[in-house]
Nucleic acid binder design. Structure first.
Lengths: 336, 336
DNA sequence: CTGAAAGCGCTTACAG
DNA sequence: CTGAAAGCGCTTACAG
């Protein structure tokens, strides 16, 4: 397509002048402006965003690192969190580079993207990527806390330890003593926090923590979260005498529910279920309605966006933001 | 951050060599490779995607033009369609530049984005943007047909004329003679197609088309689709004696439903409703369950992605793809 | 296998 | 108000 050179030549002016007509960064006389614009139109010229970005070192794009699960569709958590990010970014004129590609181990493949800042979901333990962004001087905000904790890294998160504590406490108070915990995958920091919270509940109530059986999602063994719930339930119900299960997400709970039906069990009569990530509509549609935790994903996304924008203005900015979450009591638990 | 020059200098090689080590486009001896890599690591060097894109004229990014409604959240249609695009793009290693920014009329503000191709939602009549992409030689696929039709433009769409015909025919067959049609905004091509389809139904059944009252969504008057439905219903029910209403989307239907409740009307006893865009879960949750059209948004997105990828390989590609949609009969209509 | 140099399409001090 | 030239950080023929 036509370049700034073509326009400059045909209009009989310098590139700098053409540049200024479009960027309005320095005043150009009306006659010249008109001539340039008309030539540009004739040639079908539009400034090249990439070349411009390279020169000014700014893209007005925010990167969103959100590797997609194998099944492919965005989870309700991801959608809501995306909604929050979009709102905040749109408000400030930023667009979003949605990066759903799987992570590459090969350092060689890692490049600095055409973005002014990055929001990264689900940081892992000792996540290499964090320091890479630091080296590249690209402002970064995590959704989920860094592990180990680091007061120089900005992030938004729920208080997962506390949440798991509340859930554990709720179930223990109801009289449950043996609990199956279908946790997220073991390399996620949230998994650690949850186990700690659950353990604290057991400690406080004076119940030995070995009465809790913790499992982890593993994409090698489970194609989908629902399958994770289903398979784990089918495999565990004989071996361990648990009366309650804490599920990573409502999708996992869906799988558990399916398993209980096949096993002739009834919820909550024979088994109590709590899910940690809440898709309100799903939770309310399930039979029985699912007791679950509302993570306020949209708020997480919006706060991440807000902090990132702050940080792109002033790179010194560090903010760690805990978003309120809430256990919502519905119908899937009962007192023993 | 460190550039290719820094690495080259410190490693005592040329930039071309460093480039080759990372791109693997030409073989570099093991010792040199090792030296370069170790220096790169020491310096925290990562190739700059923007500079690279400028040189090779390729970004591996697909643009998705999807201006966000004022309310802010993605509609169910948009989410599903995004899911389809994501799946297809991820499969081929593309990322997505999600552009939710409102359109700018100022030609001067239009630039060629850092993308290899573009998927554009909701093309308008004589949409200027289409020829701009053509001038920029950026492969383009529309979601929604171009207006006027143009056999050189690739797009995916439902057969909206036929769909509206089926809906009209259904209602007329049920005995409805006066119908309120809360259409999409008038500058969208889909609006035209729907009116034509509805008219055809009236013609076939021998009912004069002036018995259909067509209104259009207008963001100046309606803050949200739901409000559009609510207000239109409140304003029209006295003036026109319609027995059925065709709503642009299920959100609009939600507003209508709210209005009927306030007016002491009952659906479908006093009013039949059909919605043209279907969010399955919303439709099934409504009381009564909403008769609506399933547009297969995910399929639209996936097909758009597929065609675009095809087109980025071979720019000559032109494909126009009609995705099946289906009228799903639930509880919101009745025979008079 | 490696280097020197031109080029990708912009912007921006500097000079006038 | 406008121009000439260097620079942004890469890639890629061309030459050896």
């Amino acid at each position: 397509m036509a370049t700034i050179d073509d326009v400059a030549k045909l209009a009989g002016v310098s590139k700098g002048t053409v540049s200024s007509v479009f960027s309005k960064k320095r005043p150009i006389s009306q006659p010249v402006t008109d001539r340039v614009l008309s030539v540009a139109k004739e040639l079908g010229y539009f400034p090249n965003h990439i070349a411009r970005s390279l020169a000014i070192k700014k893209t007005m794009i925010v990167g969103l690192k959100m590797p997609i699960s194998k099944a492919g569709n965005l989870s309700q958590f991801e959608i809501q969190m995306l909604n929050g990010v979009i709102k905040e970014c749109t408000k400030h004129g930023y667009r979003i580079l949605l990066d759903t590609l799987p992570e590459h181990d090969d350092l060689t493949q890692f490049s600095s993207d055409p973005v002014d800042g990055v929001i990264m979901l689900n940081p892992r333990k000792h996540d290499q990527r964090i320091e890479r962004y630091e080296q590249m001087r690209i402002p970064l905000v995590l959704v989920g806390r860094p592990d180990p904790l680091d007061s120089s890294i900005s992030y938004v998160d729920n208080d997962n330890e506390q949440l798991a504590y509340e859930v554990g406490n709720y179930l223990l108070t109801q009289g449950h003593r043996s609990i199956l915990f279908l946790n997220a995958s073991s390399d996620m920091t949230v998994s650690v926090d949850r186990v700690n919270g659950l353990k604290r509940a057991f400690d406080v109530q004076g119940t030995p923590f070995h009465n809790a059986k913790v499992m982890n999602f593993d994409r090698k063994h489970h194609a989908t979260p629902t399958e994770y719930g289903y398979i784990s339930m089918m495999q565990s119900h004989q071996k361990i005498p648990f009366t309650a299960v804490v599920a990573d997400t409502d999708r996992v709970a869906l799988g558990i529910l399916r398993a209980t039906r096949e096993l002739g069990m009834e919820v909550p009569r024979d088994l109590s279920i709590v899910a940690l990530s809440n898709d309100v509509r799903l939770a309310e549609e399930m039979t029985p309605k699912l007791t679950s935790v509302e993570l306020s994903a949209e708020m997480l996304g919006a706060e991440a966006g807000r902090i990132l924008i702050q940080k792109m203005i002033d790179p010194q900015t560090v903010e760690q933001c805990i978003v309120d979450a809430q256990l919502i009591y519905r119908e899937s638990c009962r007192t023993l």
